[in-house]
Every structure is written in C-alpha cells, then in structure tokens.
Design a protein around this nucleic acid. Sequence first.
DNA 1: ACGGAAACGTTGGCTGCGCCAACGTTTCGG
DNA 2: CCGAAACGTTGGCGCAGCCAACGTTTCCGT
Lengths: 146, 146
Amino acid sequence: MISQTAVHARRLVSEAFAVSSARGYHYRVLAALQEFGPASQAELGRRGRMDRSDVVAAVTELAREGFVERSADPADRRRNTVTITTAGIQQLQRLDRALDTAQDELLAPLSVAERRALVALLGKVLEHHGGVPTSRSVADRPPNRS
Amino acid sequence: MISQTAVHARRLVSEAFAVSSARGYHYRVLAALQEFGPASQAELGRRGRMDRSDVVAAVTELAREGFVERSADPADRRRNTVTITTAGIQQLQRLDRALDTAQDELLAPLSVAERRALVALLGKVLEHHGGVPTSRSVADRPPNRS
DNA sequence: ACGGAAACGTTGGCTGCGCCAACGTTTCGG
DNA sequence: CCGAAACGTTGGCGCAGCCAACGTTTCCGT
C-alpha cells in the first residue's frame, strides 16, 4: 500500500525537518521561490500545491525568521511580492541536505536501478493524476448562487 | 516524491470511503478483525499500526453502527474482546470494493507489469523499515524516571 | 505471598496537512 | 461603469499520527 510507504516517508521527512524546526509548507515555499524567483503568495500556492491560507501562515513564519521578505507589489496593490533572502537560501540548502539524507534512508533497501524505477513509476502516476487543480481561484466565490 | 503520490492516494481513498462515511481507522479495524479474528483493542492497534487511543474511538464508532461488538474478556478483565458482526463483514466488503476501484483509478496509467513492479518496490521499502515498532506498550510509563 | 512492573482501556490533548468559507480590497473586462 | 475575478487574510473543519496520564487488572521475581 502506497499510504503505508508514505507514512514512513513522512516520518523520515519530518524527522529531517525537525532539526531545523521547519515544516513541509516552509520547504515548499522556499523551494518554489528558489526555483522560479519572487512571486505573489497566490502564485506560490499554485507552484507548491498549497492553499492560499496556508501560504499566508508559512510566509508569515518564514518572514519572522528572516528567510523571506514580504513587500507590497507596486504594480498590483492586491499582491504581496515574496522574496527569498540569503538566509532563506541557506536554510533551503540545509533542508535539502536533510531531505537527501532522509530519502537515502528511506530507499536504503533499493538498488540504484530500483530507485530509478520507483521514481519513474511514481512520476507516471503523478503525471497522470497531475495538473494543478487546486488553484482555488475557482473556489473563491461559491457563496450560493442559484 | 513519494509524499506527493501519497496525497493522491489519500484523496482517492478518502473519496472512496466518503460514500460509506467511513474513515481509515474503521477500515483497518474491520480488516484486522476479518483477517485474524476477534481480538483485544491493543492487539488491533498492533495489527493495524494504530495508537491505542485511536482504536478506542474507532471501535466505539463501529460499535455504534453495529459493525463490531465490544465485550468484556472473561479470561482477562483488562481486555475487551472485539468481534466483527455480519453487518461489519458486509461493510468491510463494501469498503474493499471501493478501495479496489480507487486503486484502479490511481494506478490507471500503469500497465499490469508496472503495477506489480511498483508494489514489489514499495513492499521492499516497507519491509526494510517495517517491524511493528509503535506498540506503545513501551511508551506507557514514561513518567519521569531518573 | 507480596509488591512492583507491565499491559490494558480510556480521556484528553497536540501537531501537521489538506481543505473550505467568508471578508474587504484591488484590478480587469465587457 | 459595473460586475466579475483575483488577492491576502482570518477562522474554521476533518483526518491521521502521536503522547501523557489515570485507574484497573494481571504477571512475575524475589
């Protein structure tokens, strides 16, 4: 069962994150920022499959720790532009290393070829069910409209 | 990422369960009962990797719906013997069918051979990290003992 | 035989993750 | 110009995985 395996994955990952007192959302925000550059919070949510409201919390916490900066977007006053800081990049590198370790531990019983096979299979499944559906940009105005 | 795949798995599974208004814990209890026969709640927890306290809740709910019966074990008055009822067996079959459907949907993009390969790989990972560690029978008396 | 250790059931609580609902504001488009 | 849409924010829900503590009962070593 995939769920079973996921439990172990989660445990190892959270174990890895615990050291830096970070959570999954933090990592996803930082990773999305590093990969695609500064963005609005809604955009971060789309990149990382997070709900808008969860992005708010993650960004707030990251900002408090000095890993990102939240600034008003002059071009669009609805948006906040979120930027990763130098400290944030370092934190991301730390988390990446921790993640690598955890992954190694998780996949310990598998040969390199097997790991590649597993990743390929999971990728296939993910791609199929993939998309970026939870944009929520759709679910904003479901106040009853007959 | 395995976690990503797990998210989809979870969504499909809970979608499948939603119909019967059941949750993961319920299924695990019923499945464990069917597979190994009546047992104490602690035993159910070990079989299904659940915490004792979560078993309590699951059994209570299942009992309220008439899917299991909770009776005092005459041989050991600490224990409750939990037994699956006929209705419980039927419910389990329903859930099993729903699960099969969900799994089919999840693994839709994979050929039969690929599915077998995936299962084998995950099994390997699980077995390695396997065991039944969370018995909690160990974590009962961690009141500070210097 | 006795007393401490261990197992059991139960209550209650905490965290993380994935969601949805509603609001006020701002921007966009017909 | 006005309604629709997007954005950020607050607040809430459910499930899953845990841990802590309690009272009771049983087990085991001395």
